[in-house]
Every structure is written in structure tokens, then in C-alpha cells.
Design a protein around this nucleic acid. Structure first.
Length: 657
DNA sequence: ATATGTCTAAACAATA
DNA sequence: CTATTGTTTAGACATA
């Protein structure tokens, strides 16, 4: 009862900094609702309606923009503006400083590109001016109108991005009255006319569907197009040896798998709780150039910041393989692009939220389905999820796609380094994607046992009551906010079943602790790190078919592989481990080294000396001698991915929302 | 074919 | 008495 209410609280609390949760969570599975609620019934459009429509259009435009960012593809026709050479800089502008540092930026962007950024700024201003003629739009065909409108909205978004950039001091301050000028340029009557015409074209819902169709098709056809940043797909750049272009074969293979894992376009089955292998075929970067290529357009390479001229596809392919091979730089750029997309998603969410706030302020009812803020809150986006009616819900591929963008890194900066306290793969994975799991209705790729262990180890005293464990689950994972009976039973089952969980009588009741020795003993799934397996696990996280457990174990394995800190396992050894050693070998290697290197809390000497058999005879754990505190301090020296850690350094330990 | 590990479901007892 | 907590068993899956 208490638990239920707790989880309910979490569910309805805006627990992410995107702030969309609380708003969009109200949306139900109202796919059935047909638009129409825009209130343009009698040809009369209130200012509020206009506002709303405008926002919708903006969001739609943003979404399209986003899709193009994601795909890097020139959709035929109408996107000269969006696909201007300054595309990357503009996108970069949207990144928060936490996302990408100026240094990174300079590494990735050539000086000319940075300059282009400034030019973009100028160009935008010019465009804004040109749009003072929006009246003329009325004479245009409706489709053109719609497009123009999208452009306008897009520019609004871009302006905001520029603003962000300015905030970072990356761009000299310039007048950014874009929105105002735009809105001033159009008197209400203009707008009315415009919106009428626009709304005559594709409804926003239709547009959304189209967009999603595009999304999907893009996703499935371009391996480089979408970077769902599958929860565990994180390959720390620093894990690559030296920042050199030379990349050991194995690592190359790893990178390749990582990248191709993004191609997964699997539509989840219903009823399957568990992450399973991506069932989509392995789509390689090489398979997709059947005449066109998302990275090739207008005779030039569309790789962010490249623009190399290529006469034909063949030449482009050659260029692609030569210049954008699988190396650190390319991977870095991939990540950047990933973050670009994520930032766009965030922006989208913010716009959605703003819309909601505006509507609320104007005493509008929460109003009609807002397709655009759905993607950010998949856990409750009924229209995107198959759910509720059939037990465990699974994110549909489209939502997955979006989702992965929006949440994975959406909150990158907010990641809690607290979770990195323990050098386990699950810890770093959770640390990196905690927001993702918190908001996405995706089952985490870990076994119950490992989750429980993590929960316990994460607690200050390394002990939790059952209820606290429950709460941890619901707090950290949207997935565990449903079907409580099932997973709670599983939790209890695991607690009882595994020797590694030790029940300890406490003053205020019983708490559960972890016997790390037992835990380490416990599971040596001899997974021989099959690259394919790993890839599948990564790409298939959480979606698709059944079989939970093993896949979870495998997922953990793959995580161990992918997250194993390079400092601990030297490149050569790492690659060896990767392919020939069981995952636990890797992780335990890590942890052992860590413990030797005085950094692993989990395998500290204290732990080893800790009584193991408490189950039969509950031993009293002396609260004073808890090894925890002593270990906690060490965590900062973890040889973990530094670029990630830096960002988390100054954050409070636990953010509870 | 077997062992292992996991998940789910369920029955049941003890406790708050 | 009810709800929670904890234990145990059993079946299903998947892989080594």
C-alpha cells in the first residue's frame, strides 16, 4: 500500500529536468481521439487556438528538423535552408556546456566550421528579415504555406538554439528578436488566414504520423541515421587506446558493432518484458547505398563538418570509408550528432511544455493530444506505446527511437555520479542512463539480483529494507512502476533465493545487505563475448521478444565489456578479454584491480571478512564498522571514463524528485 | 542431454 | 483480519 502510493507519487511527479513528465503523463492512450479539438470548428479561431496551432506547427517543424538532424539526410526538395552548410554548428549551438565542451567542439569542428557557425547566425537574421513579408504567404499555395510556416517555426527554434549558444559564449551576442519580429510581422488576421490554410493541409496528427513513418523508414534504412543510444550502447571514447586514429582490430569491430547497433529498427512485440536481442538483421553501413545515401547529397558528403565533394556515389563511398572510417574521431562525431539529436528532442520537449503552460495559463483545458510532447515521455505516451491492455508494455520502435535520444543523454549532466560508486558495469550503465530508465518504460537490462544488489550498495549504509528496495526500483525505473505484484514478487524471490543477499535484523526491522563474495561467486555466465551477441544485446535492449533472464545476463555481460575502463584493462588485454573472456572475467578483473588499487568498495577486504552466513543465524551488523563510508570516499578515483565523470563531478549525490 | 541461471507464478508461513 | 515480508517450489526458457 505504501509502496503503491510511493510509486504513484513518483509517477506523477515531474521527475526529470525536461519537465515534460508531469504534463505529458496526463496524456492517455488516447490514440482514438481525433484531432478536432483545436477548436477551429466554426471557422473562428481564438488567439489561444492560434497559439496552440502555432506551437503545434513549431513542434512539428522541430520534429522534422530533428529527423533530418538524425538522419543527416537531405530529404528531396525543400530543405535547402535546413541543410545549409552550417547545420552542424547550429546544432552544436544547442548543446549545453555539459554536453560538449568548447574544446570538444573545436576538436570536432574545424575552424571553418566554427566560422560557419557565426555565418549561420548572420544568415538567420537575414532570413528573419525576409520573413517580414509573410503576408505574401497568403497568396501561396497551401502546401507552400505550410512549409513556410514550418520554416518560420524552425527558425524560431534555431533562434533559441542560438540563444543557448550565446549563453555559452560561443557566439557573440547579437540581437535575437527573431520570434518577436516574426510575430510582429504577422498580424492576427494574417495568422488566422494562414492557420486556416495550413490546417487544411496535413493535420498535425497526420503530420506526426508521417513524421514517424519517416522516422521509422529512416531508421531502418540508414544505419547512420539514428542513434538511439541504446541504454547500454555507450562506448566511451576514452576506452579506445590513445586518441589515435589507429584502432586495434577488435576495437574497430567493437565500434562497428556499436554503430550498427543503432540501426536496429525493431518493433517490439507485445508482452515481453524482457530485453531481447534485436531481431532486426544486422544492417551494416555498407549495405545501404542503394542509389542514395543519407550522408550523401548534392554531390557532397554530408558527414557533419565534412562537405567533401564527391562526384558520384562510388566516390562518396570511397570517401566515406577513407575519411570517416571507424575511428575515434568518427565515433566522437557520432556521439556529437547523437547529442545534437538529443538536444533537439529536449528542445522539443521544452516547447511542448511551454505550450502546456501557456494553455494552462490561458485557462485552456490541457487540451487534445499533443503528439509532440509524447516522445519524451514514453512511459506514459499511450499513443506510442502498446501498453496497459496487455500487461507489460513494450515501446514501439518509433517511440523507442525517439526515446532513446531524448532520455538517454537528455539529462546527461544530471547523471548522478553517485551511481558510479561501484565500478560494476551496471553502475556505470545506470549512471549514464539513469534518466533513461527513469522515464522510459523499458526494462533495464539487468537481472533482478544485480539490480537489487546495486540498490543496496547504492544506499548510504549498504542496506535496505524490502520496501526501500521496492522504492528504489520504482524510483529508478519507469518499468517497475507497473505490474508491481509481479516484480515485487520477483524481488522477494531473489532476495530469498540468492545467497548473496543477506537479511539482517536491524533495530527498526530487517534490512537486506549484499554479500559481495557470494555475489561474485554466484554468476559466471561463461559468455564468450561473441561480438554478435553483444551487439544484439545492445541493439535489442528492452524491446522485442521474450526471454528475460538470460538476455539480461548477457546484457550485463556486454555492459561489462563495453564499460570496462581502459585504464584497468590495457587496450590489448581489453580486446582480448572482450572476445575471449567471460564478462564477469572482465568485470571481476576490473573490480579486483580496483580493490587492489583501493578503489572498489565492493571487494574491499572488509567485505571479504564479512560474515556470509547470516541467513541461518542473523548476525548483527555493527552499524559503526560499516565499510561503506570508508569506501565511498574512494570512488572518485575510479578509473572510469573521464569525460563522463567530469561532468558529474559537482553534482549532488542523489537527486530525488 | 544436462547443468546452470533467470524469470514468473504461486502457495504458504511469519510478522507488523 | 489484512497487508507485508520472507521462503519455497515449480515450470519455462535459453545457453554452455
Amino acid at each position: 500500500m505504501m509502496v503503491e502510493s510511493a510509486s504513484e507519487t513518483i509517477r506523477t511527479t515531474p521527475s526529470n529536468q525536461n519537465g515534460v513528465s508531469s504534463l505529458s503523463s496526463q496524456s492517455d492512450a488516447g490514440g482514438g481521439r481525433e484531432g478536432g479539438s483545436n477548436g477551429d470548428t466554426n471557422g473562428e479561431i481564438s488567439p489561444v487556438d492560434l497559439l496552440h496551432l502555432q506551437q503545434q506547427q513549431a513542434l512539428q517543424a522541430a520534429r522534422q528538423f530533428l529527423l533530418q538532424q538524425a538522419s543527416g539526410l537531405n530529404s528531396p526538395g525543400n530543405n535547402e535552408v535546413k541543410q545549409s552548410p552550417v547545420q552542424v554548428p547550429v546544432s552544436m549551438a544547442m548543446m549545453s556546456p555539459q554536453m560538449i565542451t568548447p574544446q570538444q567542439m573545436q576538436q570536432i569542428l574545424s575552424p571553418p566550421q566554427l566560422q560557419a557557425l557565426l555565418q549561420q547566425q548572420q544568415a538567420l537574421m537575414l532570413q528573419q528579415v525576409t520573413h517580414t513579408h509573410t503576408r505574401a504567404l497568403q497568396q501561396l499555395g497551401s502546401k507552400q504555406l505550410a512549409f513556410q510556416q514550418q520554416l518560420i517555426q524552425m527558425q524560431q527554434l534555431q533562434q533559441q538554439h542560438i540563444l543557448n549558444l550565446q549563453r555559452q559564449g560561443l557566439v557573440p551576442l547579437q540581437p535575437t528578436a527573431a520570434m518577436q519580429s516574426l510575430q510582429q510581422a504577422m498580424c492576427p488576421s494574417d495568422l488566422q488566414q494562414l492557420w486556416k490554410e495550413v490546417s487544411g493541409v496535413p493535420s498535425s496528427e497526420e503530420a506526426l504520423k508521417q513524421a514517424e513513418g519517416l522516422d521509422l523508414s529512416t531508421n531502418s534504412s540508414n544505419s547512420t541515421s539514428a542513434f538511439p543510444k541504446a541504454p547500454s550502447a555507450h562506448i566511451p571514447l576514452h576506452s579506445l587506446p590513445n586518441g589515435q586514429s589507429h584502432t586495434p582490430k577488435r576495437d574497430r569491430a567493437r565500434l562497428f558493432e556499436w554503430i550498427s547497433s543503432f540501426t536496429k529498427a525493431d518493433s517490439g512485440d507485445d508482452h515481453v518484458p524482457l530485453y531481447s536481442k534485436g531481431k532486426s538483421p544486422f544492417q551494416s553501413v555498407h549495405e545501404e547505398h542503394a542509389g542514395s545515401h543519407p550522408l550523401y547529397g548534392h554531390g557532397e558528403c554530408k558527414w557533419p563538418g565534412c562537405e567533401a565533394l564527391c562526384e558520384d556515389m562510388g566516390q562518396f563511398i570511397k570517401h566515406l570509408n577513407n575519411e570517416h572510417a571507424l575511428d575515434d574521431r568518427s565515433t566522437a562525431q557520432c556521439r556529437v550528432q547523437m547529442q545534437v539529436v538529443q538536444q533537439l528532442e529536449i528542445q522539443l520537449a521544452k516547447e511542448s511544455e511551454r505550450l502546456q503552460a501557456m494553455m494552462t495559463h490561458l485557462h485552456m483545458r490541457p487540451s487534445e493530444p499533443k503528439p509532440f510532447n509524447q516522445p519524451l515521455n514514453l512511459a506514459s505516451s499511450g499513443s506510442l506505446l502498446k501498453r496497459d491492455s496487455e500487461g507489460p508494455s513494450v515501446i514501439s520502435s518509433s517511440s523507442l527511437h525517439t526515446h532513446s535520444h531524448s532520455h538517454t543523454h537528455a539529462v546527461g549532466p544530471i547523471r548522478r555520479r553517485n551511481s558510479d560508486k561501484y565500478c560494476t558495469p551496471i553502475a556505470s550503465e545506470l549512471a549514464q542512463n539513469c534518466e533513461f530508465y527513469k522515464n522510459a518504460d523499458v526494462r533495464p537490462p539487468f537481472t533482478y539480483a544485480s539490480l537489487i544488489r546495486h540498490a543496496i550498495l547504492e544506499s548510504p549504509d549498504r542496506q535496505l529494507t524490502l520496501n526501500e528496495i521496492y522504492n528504489w526500483f520504482t524510483r529508478k525505473f519507469a518499468y517497475f512502476r507497473r505490474n508491481t505484484a509481479t516484480w515485487k514478487n520477483a524481488v522477494r524471490h531473489n532476495l530469498s533465493l540468492h545467497k548473496c543477499f543477506v537479511r539482517v535484523e536491524n533495530v527498526k526491522g530487517a534490512v537486506w545487505t549484499v554479500d559481495e563474495v557470494e555475489y561474485q561467486k554466484r554468476r559466471p555466465p561463461k559468455m564468450t563475448g561473441s561480438p554478435t551477441l553483444v551487439k544484439n544485446m545492445i541493439s535489442g535492449l528492452g524491446f522485442g521478444s521474450l526471454n528475460a533472464s538470460y538476455q539480461a545476463a548477457l546484457a550485463e555481460s556486454s555492459l561489462a565489456l563495453l564499460n570496462s575502463p581502459p585504464l584497468v584493462t590495457p587496450p590489448s588485454a581489453a580486446s582480448l578479454n572482450m572476445l575471449h573472456v567471460g564478462h564477469d572475467d572482465v568485470s571481476s578483473t576490473v573490480e579486483q584491480v580496483n580493490s587492489n588499487g583501493s578503489c572498489s568498495p565492493t571487494l574491499s577486504p572488509q567485505q571479504y571478512s564479512h560474515p556470509v552466513h547470516v541467513k541461518e543465524e542473523p548476525t548483527e551488523v555493527e552499524e559503526d564498522s560499516r565499510p561503506v563510508s570508508l569506501l565511498a570516499g574512494v570512488t572518485h578515483s575510479l578509473p572510469l571514463p573521464s569525460d563522463e565523470r567530469d561532468l558529474e563531478e559537482d553534482l549532488p549525490t542523489e537527486e530525488l524528485e
